[in-house]
Structures are given as C-alpha cells and as structure tokens.
C-alpha cells in the first residue's frame, strides 16, 4: 500500500494566495478584448441607422413630404407613389408621421435616460460613498421599484398623475433610476475595495476631489454602456405607454399610438407596420451599440471569452 499520511494541516495560505493570483492573471490574459466599435460591421450599421434617425428628426419638416397632422379625404390609402407608407384613418400621410415620430421618441428617450441617470447616478454615488444606513436604505428602495414589472408600475404612475407626455416621462424615470443607482454604486464600491478612497483620504484629498478624480472617471464606462442599452428600453417603454393611450396625446405623431391606430383594422396593415418598424430599428440600434460598447468597456462580456 501507499504511505501517504492524512493532511496534517490546511493548505498553506501563502501558496493558495499565490495560486489565486495566478488564476486571476490567467483569466486576464486568457480573455480577448472586444474589437473597436468601428471594426464591428453590425455596430457600424447600428451607428449609421441611429445617425440616419437623428438627421431625420432634425430635418423632419424638410424630409417629410406632408404635414404629419394634415388630414385629407384620402383615408386608408395603401402605400403608393404619392403616399409611400399609405395613409391612416384620417387620411394623414403615414410616412410623414413616422418621420415626425422620431422627433418625439428620440428626444423623449434621451430625456428619460438623462434624468434617470442623473437621479440614479447621484443616489448611487451617495449610497456607495457614504455606505452604512444610507446605502442600506437606498438599496431597499431600489428593491422596491424592482418588485414591480416596469410597464405595470409606469402604468400605475401615469394613471395616478393623469396621462400626458410629461407624466409618461416622469413615470419612466421613476421606474428606471434604480438600475443606474445600482451600477454606479457598485462602481464606487469597487473603488473603495481597491482602497482608492482611503488612500485619497490619507493623502489629504477630500471626498469631493476624490470623487471627481477617481470615482467619476471610473463610473463613466459602465454608465455609458447602461445608458445606451437603456435608451432602447426607454423608446420601447414609451411607445408601449402611448400604445396604451398613456403617452403623448393624440393627434401627436407618436410611434406607439400610431401602431394602436392601425390595430383597429387589420386590413390596413401599413398604418401600424411602418411605425412599428421605426421603433424596432431604433431600439435594435441602441441595443447593438450598447452591446458593442459593453464588450469594449467591460471585457468580462467580450465575445471571445
């Protein structure tokens, strides 16, 4: 038989430590970071689509052949040379309305995301920096918001405040700030874990300067990735609210409410198909871009892992 004695003691902590470090190193060198955005064809396509939509939003009155609100007796005309996307039940030109819809959806999504980022980011910074009770309280608050499916809470909020563009934006900010709070908080915590802040304190650098110097720059990456992905989500949720009649009021050319209008008569497919495609392309572009950015900025998610 063999002559091996049972373990007398636990593994040497130093050896284990060294091993853990090597494992981490191995993981770091084993991964491939994502390619630059401009070398990913699909991300480039997303950028082009978004750029196109931005231009259309800027120059809508020039691009759109008709007034988006102008009614005409020519109702329910199928797509043709005069009306590329046909006309709706009131004889309005669907193409012009889709173009003008970008002037609502894109700026509103930007507004929702910037507000939520501002509020959530600030709260996250405070939670991560102060810690203790404040952190605990804020995190429980985010749990609370997460306890509701977003659209349902947003519906309840708009129903309580009354449907309007402003209240839809407000509702979506209320349901989406916690994500930012969580992400920024964990960025701050990572830094605290890395002793940046305590080192800063030792060096006599005040909390505000430490935040500006170290914490903010290090939170920018995750915040950009999240904000891009959330832009898509905001467009989607906003269109859902207005599809339900809880967003911008008619006759505003909003994509979600345009789809709703078309749902009344299936034979007039063009009334809802085109605004839906508009939502789809914008959201998809934001999502693709967000994914690509994430692969770049947070290599843990890189494709070739």
């Amino acid at each position: 038989m063999t002559t091996l004695a049972p373990d007398p003691v636990a593994p040497d902590p130093k050896a284990t430590d060294a091993l853990a470090r090597r494992r981490l190193l191995g993981r770091l060198r084993g991964r491939s970071t994502g390619r630059p955005i401009w070398r990913q064809p699909i991300a480039v396509a997303a950028l082009v689509i978004l750029g196109g939509w931005l231009l259309m939003a800027l120059f809508a009155p020039v691009v759109a052949p008709y007034d988006p609100l102008a009614q005409s007796p020519d109702a329910y005309a199928p797509p043709s040379g005069t009306h590329w996307f046909g006309t709706d039940s009131l004889g309005r030109d669907v193409f012009s309305r889709v173009i003008h819809g970008s002037r609502l959806s894109i700026p509103l999504a930007l507004a929702i995301v910037s507000l939520a980022l501002l509020i959530g980011g600030l709260l996250g910074l405070v939670a991560g920096y102060v810690g203790r009770f404040v952190d605990e309280a804020l995190m429980r608050l985010t749990d609370l918001v997460f306890a509701f499916p977003q659209i349902i809470l947003a519906m309840a909020v708009t129903a309580a405040f009354g449907p309007s563009t402003r209240n839809a934006v407000l509702a979506l900010v209320i349901v989406s700030w916690p994500v930012y709070a969580r992400v920024i908080r964990s960025a701050v915590l990572t830094m605290r874990g890395e002793d940046y802040l305590s080192a800063a304190r030792l060096l006599g650098i005040g909390p505000v300067r430490a935040l500006r110097r170290d914490v903010l720059p290090n939170s920018v990456g995750p915040a950009i990735v999240l904000a891009t992905l959330e832009l898509g989500n905001a467009v989607l949720l906003l269109s859902a609210l207005s599809f339900l009649g809880l967003g911008p009021r008619p006759p505003a050319a909003e994509w979600g409410s345009m789809v709703a209008l078309g749902s009344q008569d299936l034979s007039m497919w063009w009334v809802s198909v085109f605004p839906g495609l508009a939502i789809l392309t914008v959201v998809m572009a934001f999502n693709v871009l967000g994914d690509a950015l994430r692969d770049r900025i947070d290599p843990r998610y890189a494709k070739g892992r």
């Binding site: 699909i42 898509g232 989607l236 269109s239 859902a240 599809f243 979600g256 789809v259 709703a260 078309g262 749902s263 299936l266 034979s267 497919w269 809802s272 198909v273 839906g276 939502i279 789809l280 959201v283 998809m284 999502n287 693709v288 994914d291």
Partner: peptide, 24 residues
C-alpha cells in the same frame, strides 16, 4: 442577432404582425 431582435421588438406590434399573418 435573433435574440437582440426579439428584445427590440415592441410586443404589441409583434402581436399585430402575427395576427395579420396567421389570422388575416
């Protein structure tokens, strides 16, 4: 790409498209 497409599709619109194709 398919999964991203699914995530980016408005559910209400997809329902209409499906209804249009399979019913209408």
């Amino acid at each position: 790409v398919g999964a991203l497409l699914g995530l980016s599709t408005p559910p209400f619109w997809l329902s209409l498209v499906v209804l249009y194709v399979f019913f209408y």
